[in-house]
Design a binder for these strands. Structure first.
Length: 429
RNA sequence: GGAGAGAUGCCUGAGUGGCCGAAAGGAACAGUUUGCUAAACUGUCGUACUGGCAACGGUACCGAGGGUUCGAAUCCCUCUCUCUCCGCCA
């Protein structure tokens, strides 16, 4: 959530930023915020004054009673009724103004970084770089959803979608044999690489409460996209970003402990309501998938350097996996609600002849920290909101799809050599 | 799931209606002393909102939300969480 003081002092910057996102009615919304903010402050001051008078009266009454001047005390008591009803009124209008203000504020997305390109949709994203050679496949090459039928244990598929439908539903595949093992290998490889890069591994809960959903911005923006356990009022996480970042909710981090670098593996759950169009076959889009996530908490002045570092880390993983990839700088219209700058990493899927998004690395600046009340005390003793960042490193299914497709030969599928020590085989056949 | 106890500032912990934004100790920070370390002494030591150029004020917060009262950390109600015991169980 944007800081009120920031909106107040940088109205034009905020408006320009929202324009880049093609946020509708930005002018009216910001004006509404500013009006409500002024109302809130006026009411606050009236209320404080009234309460100050009440406090003075109460003190007076106390003194009178101590002095044994009962009659005077009773007279003074009579005067408090008006103050009391006045403060009650003001309290109610303050509460209502604050609620209105809050409800508008949560609908305003983050202000994009100056480097974010203009644009409405995915086609307008900027290709920052492309790396690696797209492989030329042999004649009998197939997309991964066909390939998986060929190499499973006991003549069955490597990844069984129908079995998933039976026990759960569409989008919940069952990985078997070498598919299960290569997934486990990737998780370990990714976590080890993160550890080498200085990230501390955490194993968070994979269901979270409403406060956590709000803290990182999934609520109220993406309410319908998360699975919800009604009995306990808990949400199943769409990404490890949610529990890991919320570890630092309401925390004042000592300056010396910064930056904080965490990594964690979790399954992720997404309802993907309304997004089952074309191109969602096989592993391309699932309701449950595995992901290793990076989360960083940085001083504001370091956050963009940290973002570049995370981008390079993700790229190094893709290089080690020998996958052709490209890096996109998302345009204003395609960026997530809470992000100020996002890089998407996409791998080439040779049989589908498409790029598949496997990582998204973002700097949220203070947008999440403001909701989380995640701060540090700077050297002058002042409280300061920190910057939060996160990135996938990496999401598994599409990496697997790309490995299957790009590395297929008539004799089977070659396993990238970095994974061989982790999974114990070098070929799926 | 049943019974009991509790929730106070960075930590320990006092406080059962006004003198309490809150004792005391510890930690931390700054300074004095000191050959160094330690010790000792002195001082600082919550957050949010708000007024003011500032100095300095106002208000709120003692798990959360209500209530009683002129006045609540303190009394009442509801909820949440923690701990102990019992049951069940990976």
């Amino acid at each position: 959530m944007l800081q009120l003081a920031y909106i107040r002092e940088n109205r034009e910057t905020v408006l320009a930023g929202l324009a880049k996102r093609h946020f509708a009615n930005a002018d009216a919304t910001i004006d509404q915020v500013l009006t409500l903010d002024q109302q809130r402050r006026d009411t606050q001051r009236d209320l404080d004054d009234t309460l100050a008078q009440s406090n003075a009266k109460a003190k007076e009454i106390g003194a009178l009673m101590k002095a044994g001047q009962q009659a005077e005390a009773n007279a003074a008591k009579a005067e408090t009724a008006a103050l009391k009803s006045r403060s009650k009124e003001l309290e109610e209008s303050l509460k209502s103004v604050e609620q209105q203000l809050q409800s508008v504020l949560v609908t305003i997305p983050n202000v994009p970084h100056s480097s974010v390109p203009e644009g409405r949709a995915a086609e307008d994203n900027e290709v920052v770089l492309e790396h690696g050679e797209k492989p030329t496949l042999y004649d009998g090459a197939q997309p991964h959803w066909e390939l998986i039928k060929k190499y499973g244990p006991d003549g069955g598929p490597l990844i069984d979608f129908e079995l998933g439908v039976k026990i759960t539903g569409a989008g919940f595949p069952v990985y078997k044999g070498k598919a299960a093992r290569i997934q486990r290998a990737m998780i370990n490889f990714f976590l080890d690489e993160a550890m080498k890069a200085g990230y501390v591994e955490v194993q968070p809960p994979i269901v979270v409460n409403e406060e956590s959903g709000f803290g990182t911005g999934q609520l109220p923006d993406k309410e319908g996209q998360m699975y919800f356990i009604n009995e306990e009022k808990l949400y199943m996480i769409p990404t490890a970003e949610v529990p890991i970042t919320n570890l630092y909710r309401d925390v004042i981090v000592p300056e010396g402990q910064l930056p904080i670098k965490n990594t964690g593996y979790t399954p992720c759950f997404r309802r993907e309501a309304g997004s089952w169009g074309a191109h969602v076959r096989g592993l391309n889009r699932l309701h449950q998938f595995d992901k290793v996530e990076l989360v960083r908490i940085e001083k504001p002045e370091n956050s963009y350097a940290a973002l570049e570092e995370m981008s390079l880390h993700v790229q190094s993983l893709l290089q080690k996996l020998e996958l052709p990839y490209r890096v996109l700088r998302l345009c204003g219209g395609d960026m997530g609600f809470t992000s100020a700058l996002t890089y998407d990493m996409e791998v080439w899927s040779a049989a589908q002849q498409r790029w598949l998004e496997v990582s998204s690395v973002s700097n949220f600046e203070t947008y999440q920290a403001n909701r989380l009340k995640l701060r540090t005390k700077d050297s002058s003793g002042k409280m300061q909101l920190l910057h939060t960042l996160n990135g996938s490193a990496l999401a598994l299914p599409r990496i697997l799809a790309s490995i299957l497709e790009n590395n297929q030969t008539a004799e089977g599928i070659r396993v990238p050599s970095v994974l061989v020590p982790y999974c114990g085989f070098d070929r799926i056949d």
